[in-house]
Amino acid sequence: MSNILVYALHHEGAINKNSLGAISTASKLAAELGGEVHVALVGEDISDDVAGSVGKYGAAKALRVNAPAGVAQPVVDALDTIASAGDYGYAIFGGGLLGFEAGAGLAARRGGGIAVEITGLRVDGGQLVAERPILGDSSISEIKFKGFGVVVGRLNAFEVVESGSPVAVEDVAVSLSDASGKVSVVTRGEQRGADVNIEDANVLITGGRGLGKPENFSLADDLAKAFGGNSAVAATRAAVDAGWYPYAGQIGQTGKTVAPKLYLGLGVSGAIQHKVGMQSAENIVAINKDSNAPIFEFADLGVVGDLHTITPALTEAIKAKKG
């Protein structure tokens, strides 16, 4: 029960940063558990170079499975086949949508337990202990496993650390389950909307569902322009899913991670999945009419009020200040 299996999510020739973080963390833990980290990659055109590179982050083995990428079922089939043939106590996923789905499927298939949104892992008495922030991060619970444990990390929770060199790639044959044959990816990673750059901005005005309608993004635009210089407009998933703003401008779990000098949210509730993408901002300001909104728990300056009256006035005041 001492090895750890890690799933490496990849797309277009690159392994996801959160997966690399999971491999790095797992390699430290495996050493304490007296085992190894083995990494599974599932896809149809994964090169030797990409698969073997997992060794650089501490993996002892790179296990490549030739199966469709982009949906969870083949990943469950692959990891279950590998886990059944070896001595694995845990499986770790770097997070992301596929991590939640595949992790849950794997835990169910192997009769194990699962812990999601994990921000810390340690070994205690020969067992993994996972830290899970709950209640809007106001409290942390710890989770242990009786049997096989599946851990899904929170976005950006695990640091990427290079500690080794590439390893040889082993191909593993997996027979796919019935369910795997019933899901197929038609298109993957479609970038909806214009290609806006939010990662390099110093000032990010972020629009949420509270803007009410797409035209109201002009409030965010005008405010960003008033700041001038290196400012840009970003959005929440709710606003992007509604088609109000381009996907490239989305902050959060399935969007970008940003760390501007100033983050200013307009009608953003501050859901965890959004927070994980912007909590490193130096200054966080929020305008929201609901004093109970979670964003007020982590904003440096919270303004309880109607964004439709405050924002235009603020834009004018900043313009006046700059002269």
Binding site: V183, R188, G189
Partner: peptide
């Protein structure tokens, strides 16, 4: 929406 953008799945 998944980690790389929008996916269409049958």
């Amino acid at each position: 929406q998944a980690e790389y953008g929008y996916d269409t799945v049958k």
